[in-house]
Design a protein around this nucleic acid. Sequence first.
DNA 1: CCTCCAATTGCATGCGGATTCATTATTGCC
DNA 2: GGCAATAATGAATCCGCATGCAATTGGAGG
Lengths: 351, 351
Amino acid sequence: MSKLVGIDKNIDKLDRRRATSYDVAKLAGVSQSAVSRVFQQGASASKAMRDRVLHAADELGYRPNAIARGLITQRSNMVAVIISKLTNLYYPEVLVQLTQRFSEHGVRVLLFALEHEGDIESILEQTLQYQVDGILTAAMMTPAQLRTVDRIGIPVVFYNRSYNDELVNSVRCDQEEGERWLVGELVKAGHKSFGIVEGPEDSVVSAERTAGARRKLREMNITDITSVSGDYGYDTGRRCFAKLVAQRGSAPDATIAANDVMAIGCIDEAREGFGLDVPGDISIVGFDGVGPASYAAYDVTTVRQPVGRMTEAAISMLLERIENPDLSPEKRAFSGLRVRGGSARLLSDET
Amino acid sequence: MSKLVGIDKNIDKLDRRRATSYDVAKLAGVSQSAVSRVFQQGASASKAMRDRVLHAADELGYRPNAIARGLITQRSNMVAVIISKLTNLYYPEVLVQLTQRFSEHGVRVLLFALEHEGDIESILEQTLQYQVDGILTAAMMTPAQLRTVDRIGIPVVFYNRSYNDELVNSVRCDQEEGERWLVGELVKAGHKSFGIVEGPEDSVVSAERTAGARRKLREMNITDITSVSGDYGYDTGRRCFAKLVAQRGSAPDATIAANDVMAIGCIDEAREGFGLDVPGDISIVGFDGVGPASYAAYDVTTVRQPVGRMTEAAISMLLERIENPDLSPEKRAFSGLRVRGGSARLLSDET
DNA sequence: CCTCCAATTGCATGCGGATTCATTATTGCC
DNA sequence: GGCAATAATGAATCCGCATGCAATTGGAGG
């Protein structure tokens, strides 16, 4: 029964091994060095050689092994991109932009997505093991981690994170400036009482935004401020608005949400839960400039982060550091785009 | 001038080289093999040895080089994840889930994001060079590409893509079933004329959805159908609705959008552009169950893809194939969650 | 205290390709 | 046409780690 089949089918299995440069060399009747040279840009090889090798390579379905290459060249051509739930680095356009721009430079993206920013420790360990050439991170590092990475000599670029006491490369949106504009406009338009809806506690960005808003309010002598905090989500946006009203007995003239999604939640709660007219009765503003913020039903007054330019800047900053590790640290802050949407009652456009 | 400095500062530079297992071995006074064994799970090493090695390793800041390890073990412990703008695989939760679950199994994610599904060719080439252990893709491959990957023996799992004539592993949401339910409910509730807003032409998912809707409509003898197509975005959603009205002279009783975002665009256009009441005058339904679909202002009637479960399934399917390459192909289709939102006039809940 | 077996440890080798050095084939130029 | 200079090629080596095999150690059992 078991010996009915005469033809040996093992060939398939043996063939399974990937072709190496040696295989190609043998088939083409040349040395392995030659094959290696043909598959590089700056190598010298005659046209005849090139043709023979490429032909043989094609025949065997040969592809250079990037792992082996990385081992010998000490360059993995991979960068680690670390994002967390709380950043807007995950927008599809951003990821497309990231992987494509890096790809143009022959660099691959190793992605790490964190639930919480604190989880970065183990991630960092992994990136180091994989010999990444650089790190683009939207999560903070501890000074110790910073030092480790620096000692090893891996360039790091922070996205929307910065440090006061450390020399790091960073690209960010000027959150404070944006909030100051929002608050300024609201106060100018006559709003007296304010509600602040903060983001999650571990969000640096949220902290920066609300701090900026508070500072500006103080400068303008506004003291009637109530704050609550949510998790950046729509549902907590709604709950937070309700909480604001409950805490102060009535809705504040203006509500400043740490991001657009919570602002949208606030708008819905104000309208549906309290029958208020936005912006007739009260104003609500957000931050980010995400897609839904511009939907007709909300048209949120907000500050839009120039995500495309920020990402572009971060990418080239990292690539530069990889090429030239001794460039001095640089911080770039972009101003947000001011969106005078219909969710806040502002004075008409400045003259 | 150039010889003023007496103290040699080259030490730093020399120190820059990463510590290898040999360095650790020398410091600990053991063989390199020993070091290697200590840093593996199934290796045999005495407690004394372990301590000495770990101590030395710690001193030098040694980390195993995953690249070198990958070369020798023929396992890169990396998988390629290919997403395109048109998939919902990019949601932050999904990416978090992906990277974390893989990470638990010691697997890293190499991310590729495509602008168009057609760009997959070069991506595939890259993944193969990087010796990934598996591929999770939300983009289609040509039969030739499929064969290449299969010959090399890399397991592939398709996400929301499937093939009729090829043996592949896939995890998907049953788009057709979902659309059939939506159409069925709409017809039962008395809608006679229908508008269909398709997605981009190169979207397989959109094609499946609209085809499913059309089939069900035909079965129910509905012939009054107008269709237009957009790009999955909010703006085209609005334009598409306007186009629908223009083409047929009045709004259809029900509009079926290929995704939620376009459905939201349609709702806004119907309300703002044409002063229609949704769902009083007309019904509009979507597909996906994305966040904004459940915002109070829209409350879209839709079918929510069980993204979490789908992702989970895709991950374990791929991991299984990596462990055991000879498992036979498997296709898993998940039913979507039916959301009877407020954007469509349906008969009250089934009894 | 000795024998025998299992657990440790070291040695040597190889994974696949880049690169240095030496050698050989070409080309340019007087 | 001959010689120097340059391009093309091959041999050998190394990158950092895992692993088969042989040698050694440590115990258990008698």
